[in-house]
């Protein structure tokens, strides 16, 4: 299939092919930049003093510390969300500074995947309370494509199959849509091909795979590698990796984690959502959080993951109550 045609939004709107969505011209221009409240020196869990969990309530400002801190990439404050009548997120607080890799661990049904969908902007969930800032911009006011253009990337646990759309076509459309939204020039086809080739090599993705329809008939490992390829190409500032290790055998896990590690940089933060400790041996997090009953109940360094693996989640259930 040839590449996407020039799209005249207005004409399509008039024809009723598409519905209006509240896209604001200029993207983030209208959104007020917020200064992160600095963390308290000695309250909450032991990790608050380092970084990580935001306190439940705003704290008194301590300018000396705040000046030393770098502004966080992602800031979640008291986030509550529900689907239909059921509350799933019950007050999530989380701060991720630039360049840091955080991991959220929790048992199935604890709400950790819901958190990733809420951050990416899936419509099924209703946000009842709280706020989320990405680089100081109000994330919750943006539609999913605006969030992506602002630098948020979610690697899905179950990537969607899109029949009839070649992976390559999709990649180019996504890349240029983001560049356009950010006011950057579109990438030329040769530049794009070069970028794909470079990113694909480490992930063992050949052009044959890129000609196939997006995710259609891909094996579990291929799907996950394709997700990481997108991440490498789109160069997001904040990556959410939802159960990236599921469906991967040990060889594929090494390929994928090697690529993810290569993407770690000062300007890019990551949030890994996982059920098992296994992934964390390959991508070592700076901070580990335990998620239970819709919120973070414990935070610590990478050793916390090992404790969890040894003892299970039962020890932390009480904390959620």
């Amino acid at each position: 299939m040839s590449s996407l045609p020039e799209i005249n939004v207005i004409e399509l709107l008039e024809l009723g092919v598409v519905r209006i969505h509240n896209r604001k011209p200029g993207g983030s221009a209208s959104i007020e930049l917020k200064r992160p409240p600095p963390p308290a020196s000695n309250s909450g869990s032991r990790l608050d003093v380092i970084e990580g969990r935001a306190p439940d309530k705003p704290m008194a400002a301590t300018p000396e510390r705040a000046d030393k801190m770098t502004a966080p990439i992602l800031e979640i404050r008291n986030l509550h969300a529900r689907i239909e009548e059921r509350e799933i997120l019950k007050g999530v607080n989380l701060i991720i500074p630039p360049g840091k890799v955080h991991a959220i661990m929790g048992r199935n049904g604890s709400g950790k995947s819901t958190l990733s969908y809420v951050l990416a902007g899936k419509e099924d969930y209703e946000i009842t309370e709280g706020e989320v800032l990405l680089n100081g911009q109000n994330l919750l006011e943006m539609d999913p494509s605006e969030r992506a253009a602002a630098g948020l990337f979610q690697a899905f646990q179950y990537p969607i199959e899109i029949p009839g759309v070649a992976t390559m076509t999709f990649l180019k459309a996504a890349m240029n849509a983001q560049r356009k939204a950010r006011g950057e020039v579109e990438m030329s086809t040769p530049d794009f091909m070069r970028a794909v080739k470079i990113a694909g090599t480490d992930l063992q993705i050949d052009t044959g795979m890129l000609k196939r329809p997006l995710n259609v008939g891909f094996s579990g490992g291929e799907k996950k590698r394709a997700e990481v390829l997108q991440m490498a190409l789109l160069q997001p500032k904040m990556c959410i990796l939802d159960e990236t290790d599921s469906g991967l055998d040990i060889d594929a896990l090494q390929v994928v984690s090697k690529s993810i590690n290569a993407l770690r940089s000062v300007g890019r933060s990551m949030l890994m959502i996982t059920h098992y400790q296994r992934l964390l041996n390959h991508i070592v997090p700076d901070v580990v959080h335990v998620f239970s009953d819709g919120k973070i109940v414990e935070s610590g360094d990478k050793d916390l993951a090992l404790q969890l693996e040894a003892k299970g989640y039962a020890d932390f259930d009480g904390a959620a109550a």
Binding site: L4, S145, I160, I162, A174, L234
Partner: peptide, 18 residues
């Protein structure tokens, strides 16, 4: 599918056409 495409930065209009 629309959500997936939008999460990659593609606008709703483009996603639907795609």
């Amino acid at each position: 599918s629309i959500f997936y495409l939008m999460s990659r930065g593609i606008s709703k209009v483009e996603a639907e056409i795609m």
